[in-house]
């Protein structure tokens, strides 16, 4: 009986199509990837009220009260104001440094309290909040310009890992989201 000649089988897996498979997967992930980053207004909520601890006392002059009613009318420290004028008022309040008697002592003590009625549309709420935030952006940009000659974003980019953010320390953002008015 003659011995069968052993046929040599190809032992390697063909890898030529591997690139195609990988390409297909790659294209799938390319298509599903969302590049747009979420952006918005970052806020910190006040902590839960503790009945045993009295709320800290704040001097009246350091507090800028911004009230918005249901129809979108703005009261700043008891005076009617157009939404466009809020920014200048907040800047004036925070950068007062004790000059005018009704505005803040220093930027660190200055607090902006933002309160609205419950039936105000969210769009207006964001509008007003944006103006307040915008005021702080303006203040910080100006100060960064003063000490380094660049705007705040550039200044922040130049900071090293351990460097102190002088601008942030000097002008901390203190917006208080107060309990809403009933009604």
């Amino acid at each position: 009986m003659p011995l069968k000649k052993r046929t040599r089988r190809q032992a390697e897996i063909p890898t030529a199509t591997m690139a195609d498979i990988a390409f297909l997967l790659l294209i799938f992930f390319l298509v599903t990837t969302t590049i747009n980053v979420d952006s918005g207004i970052y806020m910190q909520l006040p902590p839960k009220l503790d009945a045993n601890v009295d709320p800290p006392e704040i001097q009246k002059r350091n507090l800028l009260n911004i009230l918005v009613n249901n129809s979108g009318d703005v009261l700043v420290d008891g005076q009617f104001m157009a939404i466009d004028n809020i920014r200048a008022e907040v800047v004036k309040h925070v950068t007062n440094e004790g000059r005018l008697p009704n505005y803040s002592d220093n930027p660190d003590a200055a607090i902006v309290s933002f309160k609205t009625e419950r039936r105000l549309p969210y769009g207006v709420y964001i509008n007003v909040l944006d103006e307040i935030r915008g005021a702080y952006v303006e203040i910080r940009d100006n100060y960064a310009q003063e000490i380094r000659g660049v705007n705040y974003a550039t200044y922040k980019g130049q900071l090293g890992e351990d460097d102190e953010d002088e601008v942030k320390t000097k002008y901390p953002i203190k917006i208080s989201l107060a309990e809403p008015e009933p009604g």
Binding site: I41, L45, R118, R119, Y122
Partner: peptide, 25 residues
């Protein structure tokens, strides 16, 4: 949306001590 609803949700967040928020715009 009226802000009242937003305040109610925020009050719940404060109870859970999740205080870092962001208003997406």
């Amino acid at each position: 949306v009226e802000t009242g609803l937003l305040y109610d949700v925020q009050a719940e967040l404060r109870e859970a001590e999740t205080l870092r928020i962001n208003y997406s715009t």
